[in-house]
Amino acid sequence: MKIGMIQMDAAAGHMEHNIAHGFELMEEAAEHSDLVVMPELWTIGYNFHDLDKKAIQEKDSLLQKLRNLARTFGITLIPGTLPVMKRGKIYNTAYVIGPDGEIQGSYSKRHLFHEYLESKLMEPGRGMLCTHIQGVKCGLAICFELYFPKMFRKMSQKGTTLVIVPAQWPENHMAHWNVLARARAIENGMYICAVNMAGSYHNTSAGGHSLFVDPEGFSSFEGDGKEHIYYGVYDDNKYENLARTRSVIQLEKPDWAIR
């Protein structure tokens, strides 16, 4: 399975521009991919001003256009995350859209970032998502959630071998980004597809350096801080049994609960 990872330079607060540019990048990546992934909150560039006006409803035209794109190119699309209004509250939500254009699952960020407005303006999600993409059992986590290893262990114990992580990770914390993504892969015997934003917002630079980490902790490319489309290839056979045989997984009790 070939994965197109769009490290987009979003303009903070310029929603119409971001959407138009995002579709250009998605269409380019779709020509060469089975799965296309966008970063976190790319439509707003992590700008929370007037968030209630920028949040979408699940019946809005944007989601329909994303579904049409997936159907047209016959790909699976994870359009990063979007600010989605549900029952009067805003969630940081990722969708999995299948090659038929149907939404096969969604996941709303459980652990909201508490050093910015995200945790004040958004509602934390509940539950987790594990779904099959091109025959591969995949999970979702969002940005800051790389700091929560129990999430990834829970997904691993459910048979997940690839976790998609859309992100808006800042440049000044890139050392954490690199180490945490590799650690989650190594300790769980899984691939981590971490797609970060480029550009800047509120005088803070997004870090870029997206990663496609294999279960041994190696990335197939070394990203930089600029806008790019990177490509990773999930090897169905190379690490097929690693999550079931790695000793750290086997020694841990399987019945703990996520906190």
Rank of each mutant, 00 (worst) to 15 (best):
Gly13Arg: 01
Phe113Cys: 12
Asn47Thr: 03
Leu69His: 11
Thr161Arg: 09
Met8Ser: 08
Phe148Gly: 03
Tyr147His: 13
Met155Asp: 05
Asn47Arg: 07
Met197Lys: 15
Phe148Arg: 10
Ala94Ile: 00
His17Lys: 15
Lys65Ile: 00
Pro254Lys: 11
Gly217Gln: 10
Val163Pro: 02
Arg67Trp: 04
Tyr107Asp: 13
Lys120Tyr: 05
Ala243Gly: 09
Pro99Lys: 12
Gly232Lys: 04
Asn188Cys: 08
Tyr116Ala: 13
Met26Val: 05
Glu40Gln: 09
Gly45Ile: 03
Gly125Gln: 10
Lys54Asp: 01
Glu115Ser: 11
Leu140Lys: 03
Gln7Pro: 03
Pro254Gln: 08
Leu117Thr: 06
Asp214Glu: 09
His114Phe: 08
Thr131Met: 11
Ala183Trp: 09
Leu211Thr: 05
Asn92Lys: 13
Glu58Trp: 03
Phe73Glu: 10
Met15His: 06
Leu41Met: 13
Pro39Val: 02
His17Val: 06
Ser108Ile: 12
Pro215Ala: 07
Ile103Thr: 14
Ile78Ser: 02
Asn196His: 06
Phe73Gly: 02
Leu180Cys: 02
Trp256Lys: 14
Glu240Leu: 14
Leu180Pro: 01
Val96Ser: 00
Asp236Thr: 08
Gly74Asp: 11
Thr204Val: 14
Thr93Asn: 03
Met38Tyr: 06
Gly13Gln: 07
Leu25Asn: 09
Leu82Arg: 06
Leu180Arg: 06
Met128Gly: 12
Phe221Ser: 11
Leu82Trp: 05
Lys120Ser: 10
Lys120Gly: 08
Leu162Asn: 02
Tyr191His: 02
Arg67Val: 01
Pro83Gly: 08
Gly189His: 00
Pro215Gly: 03
Gly45Asp: 07
His21Ala: 11
Glu240Gln: 13
Met155Trp: 03
Phe212Trp: 07
Asp50Ala: 14
Ala10Val: 04
Ala10Phe: 12
Leu35Pro: 01
Ile75Glu: 04
Leu63Phe: 00
Tyr201Asn: 15
Lys89Glu: 13
Ala55Tyr: 02
Val36Lys: 04
Ser61Trp: 09
Gly45Met: 10
Lys65Glu: 13
His202Ile: 09
Asn68Thr: 11
Gly98Ile: 04
Phe212Asp: 00
Thr204Ala: 13
Gly74Val: 08
Ile103Tyr: 07
Phe152Tyr: 14
Tyr231Met: 09
Gly135Arg: 08
His32Gly: 01
Glu171Asp: 15
Asp9Ser: 14
Met5Arg: 02
Lys120Val: 00
Cys143Ala: 02
Lys253Cys: 06
Lys154Cys: 12
Gln104Asn: 04
Ala257Glu: 15
Ile103Gln: 11
Thr131Gln: 12
Lys2Ile: 08
Arg184Ala: 01
Met128Trp: 12
Pro149Arg: 07
Asn203Phe: 14
Arg153Met: 10
Ala257Arg: 15
Tyr95Val: 05
His228Phe: 10
Gly127Met: 04
